[in-house]
Write a protein that binds this DNA or RNA. Structure first.
Lengths: 130, 130
DNA sequence: CTAAAACTTGACGCTGACGTCAAGGGCAAG
DNA sequence: CTTGCCCTTGACGTCAGCGTCAAGTTTTAG
């Protein structure tokens, strides 16, 4: 059983974040008689999952809905709808990011390759160096 | 030459956003003697570019640095560093998002396919229905 | 000319995931 | 027992990209 500081160190987040997750119903903790939080080993993994979902653009509400599915394999029909919606959103986001990345790559190539040619891709026919 | 309301409608953003972009040095406007803003046709495209960069996770400062490169093909060495840093960040973000999407897909499959089997992928050998 | 619509600057509000004090309580070591 | 670190709740602060209201000016339509 970890104390909050240990879990924070393990998972690489702040104790404030962990209390915030509890407040949002994302992360439960066993309390000692004096009120101190204790977490099982599995909490580390759960915190990482929470972080992933957050960084995928979900809000606390969405994370709260999807967490039971992701780690307990229990999927309510309501959650399934959220799953599909979020999946689509993430997929779209990936497409947008890929497009933006390609544009940046183009700019980088133009900036680094001296003899650049905007209109013609100028790809080597069938044999590149190495 | 568009007025601010026209440009907002064309680009699908608010007038507030356009003034904000100007404040951040992302979008210049010609001013009439009375102070009203006028934008060239090309502003529509520029606004879309700004939106793309924002949605890729850049802050105003980063957008301001990269904009001259993206639309004028002038890349300072300072900007090139930002380009590469942001490109890496976006690339990492794409990898993270893809991983998260795959996890969601897994949950969706488990939730929708009745006879699910966690350990074995159970892919049909070489002939699926339809 | 006049009224409505669109524009101006200025400034405060909002949202979300925390950061950061503040003021106190708990607990193992010497 | 006391020192010192870790914990508790509570509450206000932050940051970024705008939303929104206010009060006044300008442009456009009839």
């Amino acid at each position: 059983m970890f104390r909050i500081g240990d879990l924070a160190a393990q998972a690489g987040v702040s104790t404030r974040a962990l209390r915030y997750y509890e407040e949002k119903g994302l992360l439960a903790a066993v309390r000692s008689t004096s009120g101190q939080r204790y977490y099982p080993e599995s909490a580390t993994e759960r915190v990482r999952t929470i972080q992933h979902l957050y960084s995928a653009g979900l809000f606390s509400q969405g994370v709260a809905t999807l967490l039971p599915c992701v780690d307990a394999q229990e999927t309510s029909p309501e959650a399934l709808a959220v799953l599909r919606t979020e999946r689509e959103r993430i997929d779209q986001q990936i497409r947008d990011l890929t497009a933006t990345r390609n544009r940046l790559d183009e700019v980088i190539v133009i900036a680094t390759v001296p003899g650049h040619c905007a209109a013609a891709p100028e790809v080597a026919p069938h044999a590149t160096s190495r």
